[in-house]
Design a binder for these strands. Structure first.
Length: 446
DNA sequence: GGAATCGTAGTAGGTACACA
DNA sequence: TGTGTACCTACTACGATTCC
């Protein structure tokens, strides 16, 4: 067993430094060790004792929840190594451990193989001068008591959002229709023009530099008039006859898998909603939600097959997501594989139809269903939902419901919120289908 | 005829955006 | 935090054209 310095932010940095110094006299692994030197501080995830006698030292391991080594991890490790060295810690090696997303949890609490270690000792130790420069630069800024003159840009949010971003953005004039609403990638020529002329407003961008969808966004935004190619949308959907199904999944993912046979960050479906629209215009809904805490995958797959029937298009929004989940379920459950893959053959994506044939200025450059729905069906609002209002909140609510500390009353509340959210997603697709198809849901649709 | 240039097509890699 | 798809760019290969 190792020694834990405790959460340094909770116990106070001074106490953490002192406890780290005391633990460094021993030979037990140390977690959350804290160092300071030359006006900088560092917190090491794990310190492991290595060597004997005069060769005694410590090996540092930084543990990251990502699935690969990122450049900013390398910078992080270089800083940790520098501060630890400067603080007098005899560091012999430093490694970065990250999650292996191809590893499958065998169960029984056996997590051997979850983490992959990369030795970055040579690289980290060779960057001492660079790190010294970073620290000196930061200290100069603090000493001057004046913010550096750096334009707001990509570096402000990548890899993490800067704590001063809101402050810096307040200094900029607010655009009425910002260029950031342009969808997709900007060509080099477009970006060069924007930079050269310091453009902020969409209306200032020359049409000739925009692709089709960017041009559509600009025109709708500047004129305030929605774009709707009714004929094109109806044509795109005409081939898909009723009865039709409208399907949406909610999934959960764990960096550290809890169910045997699953991988880190694997999207595991725990809930679906399916609306069925018959030829006579009758609308029915079926739902599945498993809050038992057991792996919901098999029950989910069986219930989905029962809900989707044998024939008829299955409309989804952004089909890649649901189809990938179905393919994964087919891979896990051989007996259901053929039936599940047959569902994928019936899937029809509404996202490309929306992208190609509809745009409302309120979408602000996005065709996410959360952006399209308020424009297309103003009476349907995700904001009116109680609690869960998007996929991320659904995931968090599901995790809360699985927690042993979640009360039965709270679990029931979460269940109600999840069912309402997922049902709205599929009902939204029904309404979207009706608008694009030029149908009214009250009519006999035969 | 050979070299240089241009346009097109295919491919690989990176990025943005959709979903959770 | 992940994955999948679409789009853009850069690169390469190839054929057609132009020039010497």
């Amino acid at each position: 067993m190792g020694e834990d310095v405790n959460d340094p932010q909770a116990e106070g940095f001074d106490a953490a430094f002192q406890r780290t110094q005391a633990l460094l006299q021993g030979r037990q692994p140390i977690f959350e060790a804290a160092f300071r030197a030359e006006g900088a501080l560092a917190l090491a995830d794990v310190l492991l004792p290595v060597g004997r006698g005069s060769k005694r030292g410590w090996r540092m391991v930084e543990v990251k929840s990502s699935t690969s080594v990122k450049d900013y991890h390398r910078d992080d490790v270089a800083i940790q190594a520098y501060v630890a060295h400067a603080a007098g810690v005899p560091l012999t090696a430093i490694a970065l451990a990250h999650i292996d997303s191809s590893w499958v949890y065998p169960g029984g609490g056996d997590y051997q193989g979850l983490l992959l270690e990369n030795d970055l000792s040579d690289e980290a130790f060779s960057r001492a001068d660079e790190v010294r420069g970073w620290i000196a630069g930061a200290q100069q800024i603090v000493a001057r008591q004046r913010a550096p003159k750096v334009a707001v840009g990509k570096q402000c949010g990548d890899p993490y959002e800067c704590g001063f971003l809101a402050h810096c953005q307040r200094q900029l004039p607010a655009a009425t229709h910002p260029i950031s609403w342009l969808p997709g990638r900007r060509s080099n020529a477009l970006q060069a023009h924007i930079d050269a002329h310091k453009l902020t407003e969409l209306k200032e961008v020359p049409d000739a530099l925009l692709n089709d969808s960017q041009l559509r966004v600009k025109k709708a935004t500047v004129t305030g008039k929605p774009y709707f190619d009714r004929q094109g949308a109806a044509q795109a959907l005409a081939a898909h006859k009723l009865p039709a199904y409208f399907m949406d999944f909610e999934t959960i993912q764990f960096a550290v898998p809890i169910w045997p046979g699953t991988r880190p960050y694997q999207q595991i479906p725990f809930q679906f909603s399916v609306h069925r629209l018959t030829r006579t215009g009758k609308l029915e809904q079926q739902a599945f939600l498993d809050l038992s805490g057991n792996d919901p995958s098999l029950a989910f797959a069986k219930a989905l097959l029962a809900a989707c029937g044998e024939r008829g298009p299955i409309f989804v929004y952004n089909a890649g997501f649901e189809k990938a989940r179905i393919t994964e379920l087919a891979g896990r459950f051989a007996r259901l594989s053929e039936s599940l893959l047959a569902l994928n053959e019936r899937v029809v994506d509404l996202l490309p139809v929306a992208r190609a044939h509809y745009y409302h200025p309120s979408q602000q450059g996005s065709w996410s269903i959360k952006a399209v729905l308020p424009a297309l069906c103003p009476d349907l609002r995700y904001g009116d939902l109680d609690g869960v209002q998007d996929g991320g909140m659904a995931m968090a609510a599901f995790q809360e419901a699985l927690s042993p500390t979640c009360s039965p009353a709270r679990k029931a509340e979460i269940e109600r919120q999840l069912l309402a959210y997922c049902a709205l997603d599929t009902y939204a697709m029904v309404r979207m289908w009706a608008v694009f198809s030029g149908k009214t849901l009250e009519e006999n649709l035969v």
